[in-house]
Design a protein around this nucleic acid. Structure first.
Lengths: 239, 239
DNA sequence: TAGTGGTCTAGACCACAAT
DNA sequence: TTGTGGTCTAGACCACTAA
């Protein structure tokens, strides 16, 4: 199937992941039954179930006893929603809308090249984006993507980018985000950022650097988000 | 064992959880082998493994092929030490010292009572604490603990509190911290905090609220830490 | 009633760690 | 070499859903 050295259930997982990414298995519809799949793959039920387990765990599939196993519909607040951890005082989560302002091809500077593990000066796709709640800008984002798997994005007009980018990466470029690391710092707003966020210049701004990686651990997206520190709230579970 | 209606693997999980919470299985040491446990519980390996899987998933155990399965000692300081940029020219990791300034018995206000799930006005033990690097205060902490399991702390002089509190809770009060949730916000320093942290009044300060819970999920400690936002750095892995 | 996923068993063999 | 966890099999029976 794929890499011979990997455990069977991981190869099954990869194969099913590819079926999802390629559209062979569409969101919202049921995948073949366990009996069917075990026959197709020639594996035992337990092995198949283990593979499916990991995909369910990652929010890509959903089981329903007696009905079947379904591909989860992306663009919903589903698997990718967990990446946005800002919480309002009531504890409820609000998903801001996202709007891409510009899209360009640039050369990676030291920071971006380092984050994406690319040579200095490599082609990167750069997006400028604002995220809004109630029509107010809450975040300004710079997003960098390696040219190679994301070239398709250059053919898409900024206004045609979806509200959420990760389902978009998946549907347009076949790239699935599996994990991310975020680093939070605080800086003072310069005039441009202050203007975008509607705050005074010199006021504190929270910077969220995010390096998002695929299921293989390779870096896929580097992002810097800036928001008003005064209304910022970030929640993390530690164990 | 516990609730008859639950699946076997969930009852196993609950039983093992209780063993951890009660201290019968201590952090850092190996639990009995799979063969031993299946004999004790009278279940198949697969069922036991599934129960252990959930505990590993939750970060309470750690498997090591060929060696055994171990109770994980959560180390919050791993993330704590990354809270602040290292000003150390050598880039070496500095461990902040912790010093308890005061210890008192107070009545829980709305915030504290809500966090610790206590009635309003319930007795709580309150600690004031500073953490230092190179003799400089890097953050100031208010810590609240429910009276009931922590009464023993009232008999200990502030200067006799250890550098780290969680091992102290364990040794003096038999309370193990299993997990925590942190919420980050930014506020402006008032005169008192500014003075303690050695920054100007009105400058931004990062507030880290932490609710630490036992292995059973019950709240054990509520803490507010405040540090200079300008040197703040907080890193999180999301998956 | 037929078909689905959910739980559970009782083994087999492998990879790794300690000795 | 021995014992550990890691993977995988080939079934069994149960709970739920839909026709």
């Amino acid at each position: 199937m794929t890499d011979e050295r990997l455990p069977l259930y991981q190869r099954l997982r990869d194969d099913m992941l590819a079926k999802i990414a390629s559209g062979e298995w569409s969101p919202g519809i049921a995948i073949p039954t366990e009996a069917e799949l075990t026959k197709q793959y020639g594996v035992a039920v337990g092995t198949l179930r283990r593979a499916v387990d990991t995909l369910v765990q990652d929010g890509l599939m959903e089981r329903s006893q007696g009905r079947g196993t379904f591909i989860r519909r992306p663009n919903f607040d589903g698997s990718l929603f967990r990446f946005f951890r800002q919480v309002d005082p009531q504890g409820g989560r609000r998903v801001p809308t996202g709007e891409v302002l510009s899209r360009s091809l640039e050369s990676a500077d030291e920071t971006v090249a380092g984050a994406l593990a690319l040579p200095l000066g490599a082609d990167v796709i750069c997006l400028e984006r604002v995220r809004q709640i109630d029509g107010r800008n809450v975040y300004y984002e710079d997003i960098w993507l390696p040219y190679r798997p994301f070239a398709a994005l250059l053919d898409i007009a900024p206004e045609d980018f979806g509200n959420l980018l990760y389902p978009f990466y998946e549907s347009e470029c076949g790239q699935l985000i599996g994990a991310a690391r975020e680093t939070l710092t605080v800086e003072m707003a310069d005039d441009r950022i202050a203007n975008i966020l509607g705050i005074e210049s010199g006021k504190p701004v929270v910077v969220i650097e995010r390096l998002a990686t695929g299921y293989d651990g390779g870096p896929l997206e580097y992002r810097q988000s800036r928001g008003d520190a005064q209304t910022f709230r970030y929640q993390v579970n530690i164990s």
